[in-house]
């Protein structure tokens, strides 16, 4: 399947979703357009463009191997980093800024095959520096954990 085929189907689905939602929101009339007016027509335009893209993709089937990138060795790393980012966000208000940042930096350094010593040290220095920059200098309100930072 070509890349345009896959992405075209995806955006077509998004478009249909938008126009169904828009229609449910009340379109209003041309004289007094309602809240659903813009999302609905936005969805219609996106659907039309997706169909153009799909039409082109079907007409010129170059046999482009698309999903091979998912098997690339780098993909595993990307996946882990994404999990770590989400983990950071979910744990942030629970464990506090200091601990989560320490773990985050530590794990990312380990992912890059740095030694334990270097990773722990970077975690400590990194979280301390971030604390100084954001909490002390820029006065950002960062969530504290059960131990106060």
């Amino acid at each position: 399947m070509s890349r345009d085929l896959v992405s075209g189907v995806f955006w077509l689905a998004v478009a249909v979703f938008a126009l169904v939602q828009g229609a449910a929101l009340k379109l209003g009339t041309l004289r007094a357009p309602g809240p659903g007016f813009f999302p609905f027509w936005g969805g219609v335009v996106l659907a039309a463009l997706s169909l153009v893209l799909l039409g082109d993709a079907l007409r010129h089937r170059a046999g482009e191997a698309v999903l091979s990138w998912a098997r690339a060795p780098g993909f595993r790393k990307v996946f882990i980093v994404l999990v770590l980012i989400l983990g950071y966000l979910l744990a942030l208000e629970w464990l506090g800024f200091g601990a989560v940042t320490f773990l985050f930096v530590l794990l990312l350094f380990r992912l890059e095959r740095k030694g334990w010593m270097a990773s722990v040290l970077s975690g400590v220095l990194g979280s301390a520096a971030a604390y100084l920059i954001f909490q002390v200098w820029l006065k950002t309100q960062l969530p504290a954990g059960p131990w106060g930072f």
Binding site: L90, L92, V105, L108, G126, A130, Q141
Partner: peptide, 26 residues
């Protein structure tokens, strides 16, 4: 390898601190 953890960290804190909302990070 040394730079990207900090770029990510800055993005995370930046996104959070606009409204102090984890949802923005998501």
């Amino acid at each position: 390898a040394i730079m990207f953890p900090f770029i990510l960290l800055f993005c995370l804190i930046g996104a959070y601190s606009v409204t102090n909302n984890v949802g923005d990070g998501v």
